[in-house]
């Protein structure tokens, strides 16, 4: 790692201030960023750890009935404490391994927007609200391509709000070495329609499979999407799987998610 200054503020306000320094970088749980720093792929002047900020940790129900999760809440805490949204809790419990889940945070995962990360699929399928210290961003506007989001420099995710669907499920086809999703599909059925978000598959990062959403909104059963497929163009092709393989997996995992949705 290159040298950097380290700051561990206790409040969001102090963290926002610390992040105004040139080349400052926020540190969530560090489960991606610390390996990145080790490889010298990033060289911040100041690393601003968010792990000491109590006000962005924890899970609660809002007055509007939404499930609100603090940006600094770990995957293990979501797996344990998000019982009101079982599919989300189950997703969190499948990220990485137990030690990774004890450090990695939902805010960190969404800010990084790794194209194979799990949380972006849940946030997009639920059209979650990404709350930062400055504003609220709908998930539909938030994800803007691989490792790219609507966040401005120095903007901190303080909370993520989820409307709990009538039924939902996440199916992850594991890439067993990295423990990321080779393809992951999150299906969420709301009173006004079904949303399907796919991670791991596209070169553009997480995306909604709208054709499947329309078919499932009319008939919420695996048969409804039997004849549908996603195009290979734009899929990720690498040593773990070809474009065609991933495109095929999108259909398979979506059907499984619909079958398993509760």
């Amino acid at each position: 790692m290159y040298e950097f200054e380290f700051a561990r503020p206790a409040t969001v306000a102090d963290a926002v201030q610390a992040l105004t320094a040139e080349e400052a970088q926020a540190l969530g749980g560090g489960q991606t960023l610390i390996p990145t720093l080790k490889q010298r792929l990033a060289s911040p002047s100041v690393l601003v750890s968010l792990s000491g900020i109590a006000e962005i940790k924890g899970i609660c129900q809002t007055d509007e009935g939404l499930l609100a999760i603090g940006g600094g809440t770990t995957h293990a805490e979501v797996a344990e404490g998000a019982g009101a949204y079982p599919a989300l809790a189950a997703l969190a419990g499948q990220i990485g391994d137990p030690a990774v889940r004890n450090r990695g945070t939902i805010g960190g995962s969404l800010a990084n927007n790794d194209p194979a990360a799990c949380y972006p699929a849940a946030a997009l399928a639920s059209n979650a609200v990404i709350v930062t210290h400055a504003r609220e961003i709908a998930a539909d506007d938030y994800f803007q391509g691989m490792f790219t989001t609507a966040l401005e420099e120095g903007e901190i995710i303080t909370e993520v709000r989820f409307a709990v669907p009538e039924a939902a499920n996440y199916q992850k086809f594991l890439q067993p070495a990295s423990r990321f999703a080779m393809v992951g599909v999150f299906v969420a059925k709301y009173f006004d329609g079904v949303r399907v978000a796919v991670t791991g598959a596209s070169e553009e990062g997480v995306f909604r499979w709208r054709e499947a959403e329309a078919a499932l909104s009319a008939n919420f059963s695996p048969d409804a999407i039997a004849g549908l497929s996603v195009a290979q163009e734009g899929m990720i092709g690498d040593i773990h799987g070809t474009k065609a393989y991933r495109a095929h997996l999108v259909g398979v995992m979506t059907k499984r998610a619909v079958s398993a949705a509760r």
Binding site: F6, V100, N102
Partner: peptide, 16 residues
Amino acid sequence: HVDGKAVKACTMLALE
């Protein structure tokens, strides 16, 4: 273990 939770000590800064 840090505060009772298993963590990977190679992926956490000492100051944290």
